[in-house]
Each structure stands twice: as C-alpha cells, then as structure tokens.
C-alpha cells in the first residue's frame, strides 16, 4: 500500500490534483509550486516544470517528447483548513496509507466537500468582525450593534446570491450597495450611530486587503505574473465595492430624503 512506485503519468495526475485543491482554496502561488515540485521529486520525476498563476496550473516536461497538462481554475475561495490538510499530505508521503486510486478519490472528494463552517456561522462571524472593527476604528456601542447587523445582512445576501454564480464584480458591488442601504437605515433608527464607522466596519469582511498584501508578497518572491493578477483583482474588488456603496448613498441623497419625510 501507499504511494510507492508510481508511474510517471500517475505522478503528474496526482500532482495536478493536489495543485488544484490548493489553488482553489486560495493558497499562495509559491506554496502550490513548492508542493507540486516536492511531490514530483519524491516520485523520481526530477525534470518536471510547473508554472502557477492564480488562474492556471501548467505542468510539463522539459523535453519535447514529454507530457504536459494544463488546468484552468475559475472559482477560488479561501479555505485554510484544506491548505493545512494538503500540507499534512505532502509531508506524510512516506507513510501515506491509501493507494493511487483511493488517493485520487480522496482528493476529488476534497474538491467537492463542503467547507468546515456552515454559511450561518460564516454570516455571524462576518457580523462579529464588522462590529469589532467599527469599535477598533473608534465607534461606540451603537455602532457595534449597527455594524453587526450590516455585516451579517451583507454576508447573508452574498450567500443567497452564491447559487446564481455572479461574477466577482457584481457580487462585491451588490454587497457594497446592501451595506450602504442598511447603514442608512441604522443611522435613521438611532441618532448615536455614525455612518462612516458602520460602513467602514461592515466593509472589512469584503475588502481585498489580504489579496493586495499577498500580491506584494508574490512580487517579492519573484512570481511577477501572479503578483500582477492578484493586485489587479484587489483593485477591481475595491472599485466594485466603492461603486456599489456610492450608488446606494447617492440614491439616498437624491430620492431617499423625500421618502423619509
């Protein structure tokens, strides 16, 4: 048993699957490349080259009569649990209990499995972090409650819309618009709320700050193309949230005041 004496084809197949799981759960480019290279070298494929960007994995031989495989990644999310499991897998190759077919099944299962936290828990976490951020940036207890509600509802909207597979731009723009509307309603309900604190707190779960920092890390590690694309993605997300938010706030300024009176 175990993953000993794999054929070259089988090695490349497994390496591609591992890379797919890692990249889909939001691992850094260098980690994906490292893991794939380490796996191939452990199975005596020393001349395999791998190139990873956030949207594609290219895996192939250096020689002209070698094999090559390409995998396009469309939907990515962040799932640190899976990254940690794949890390365990790649460090425990020597005493891995499953054989080739079972490992393929295991990895395919990981691709389809539900994330460890349910979407209700994720919504609550989004609310909690929104509230905490609004206090950290100088809000009071009313701001905490309002930001909690806003962050919770915005994440709930995203989860409900998730089935329609909207593009990332629309997803973020709608979240921004929802945050604007709920924040306005909260400010109308309580005088002690400050609009800016609520909005800033509720935006935190949607802002691409980590993507931006990871892009800069990619640059420093020498992965220029993935650095470019991560930074472009972060800027696109920030723009789309700002557009959605500006839309709802402008609409309130133009029409809402009359409705409220």
């Amino acid at each position: 048993m175990g993953l000993n004496n794999l054929k070259r084809e089988e090695t490349l197949n497994l390496a591609m699957l591992i890379g797919k799981v890692l990249l889909k759960s939001g691992a850094e480019t260098s980690r994906v490349e490292d893991t794939i290279t380490r796996f191939c070298q452990a199975n005596n494929c020393h001349d395999v080259n791998v190139f990873v960007t956030p949207t594609v994995i290219i895996l192939g031989d250096e020689t002209p009569n070698g094999m090559g495989c390409v995998c396009r990644i469309r939907y990515r999310s962040t799932n640190l649990q899976l990254i940690s499991e794949m890390n365990d897998f790649s460090y425990n190759l020597k005493n891995w209990p499953l054989d080739y077919a079972a490992t393929i099944e295991y990895l395919e299962g990981k691709l389809k499995a539900l994330p460890p936290y349910s979407s209700r828990l994720v919504c609550l976490a989004s609310g909690l972090s929104s509230g905490c951020f609004s206090v950290m940036l100088g809000g009071n207890s009313h701001d905490f409650v309002a930001a909690f509600i806003t962050g919770y509802l915005a994440m709930l909207l995203l989860k409900k819309l998730g089935g329609y597979r909207p593009s990332a731009f629309w997803e973020n723009a709608l979240a921004g618009a929802a945050i604007g509307i709920v924040a306005i309603l909260c400010c109308a309900a309580s005088v002690q709320c400050t609009m800016e604190k609520i909005i800033v707190g509720a935006l935190m779960p949607f802002l691409p700050g980590v993507a931006f920092t990871n892009g800069l890390r990619d640059y420093m590690a020498g992965d220029l193309i993935s650095g470019n694309s991560r930074i472009a993605e972060a800027l696109l997300f920030a723009t789309s949230i700002a557009i959605g938010l500006a839309f709802s706030l402008q609409a309130w300024h133009i029409w809402g005041w009359d409705l409220w009176k």
Partner: peptide
C-alpha cells in the same frame, strides 16, 4: 502551515480601509 495563522493575523493591519 504558517499561512493558517498569518492570513487571519494580519487582518487588523491590512489597509483595506485606505483602499476603499
């Protein structure tokens, strides 16, 4: 892996607010 701690850990610092 260290990422599991780094990614949530830097969240309070990252300048998402500035970008927005």
């Amino acid at each position: 892996p260290a990422t599991v701690f780094v990614i949530p850990g830097i969240i309070p610092l990252v300048p998402g607010l500035g970008m927005y």
